[in-house]
């Protein structure tokens, strides 16, 4: 019986550790994505203003917005495609409108495609860093200030920055 107990304890401990491991996978996943840049997740920390040499490469950057579920917003970039040079600062304005009759808060979640470009896109200022409160029926100008660095892989000639827009009022 004694030998049983020791073994059972070890196996139970292994089960508990694997349960904890499932939760540990959550931060590990983020760390892994950040280190490898695999998931197209750009950093949510403001970057320093570009100190890079402006190169002569031309990259097309498109902006997409997806309204998630029933979120009562319209969000649009103007223009939706710009041509940029790596190293150069770029300024884009998004117009967001609350189309409901109530005060609402929105959160935009960015994603870059192709995913490997994400770690070379640096945001100095972005409305996605914070929640944006928009009053009922009001319109807001949202700013995105970003640059691409020169390490952007040579085969990438165009990339897309997409925002999923969520209604987070009340949560």
């Amino acid at each position: 019986m004694k030998t049983h107990n020791k073994l059972v304890k070890r196996l139970l401990l292994a089960s508990v550790l694997m349960f904890a491991f499932a939760f540990a996978l959550v931060p590990l996943y983020d760390v892994f994505c950040e280190v490898t840049g695999l998931n197209g997740k750009p950093s949510l920390q403001p970057a320093e203003v570009s100190a890079e040499v402006v190169s002569e490469r031309l990259i097309d950057v498109s902006f997409l917005t997806h309204i998630q579920g029933e979120a009562p917003f319209t969000v649009e970039a103007e223009p939706t495609v710009i041509t940029v040079k790596p190293g150069e600062m770029n300024h884009v304005t998004f117009t967001a409108k609350n189309v409901s009759g109530q005060n609402r808060a929105m959160q935009a979640v960015p994603s870059v495609s192709p995913g490997l470009a994400a770690q070379h896109l640096h945001k100095v200022e972005c409305f996605c860093f914070n929640q944006q409160a928009i009053l009922a029926g009001e319109q807001a100008e949202l700013t995105l200030l970003f640059y691409l660095d020169n390490e952007l892989p040579a085969e990438i000639e165009e990339l897309t920055l997409s925002y999923a827009v969520f209604d987070i009022s009340g949560s």
Binding site: L11, S15, V16, L17, M18, F19, A22, L25
Partner: peptide, 10 residues
């Protein structure tokens, strides 16, 4: 033992 706890976690 390795994966059923992960399912429980999920």
């Amino acid at each position: 033992i390795a994966v059923m706890p992960v399912l429980a976690g999920t």
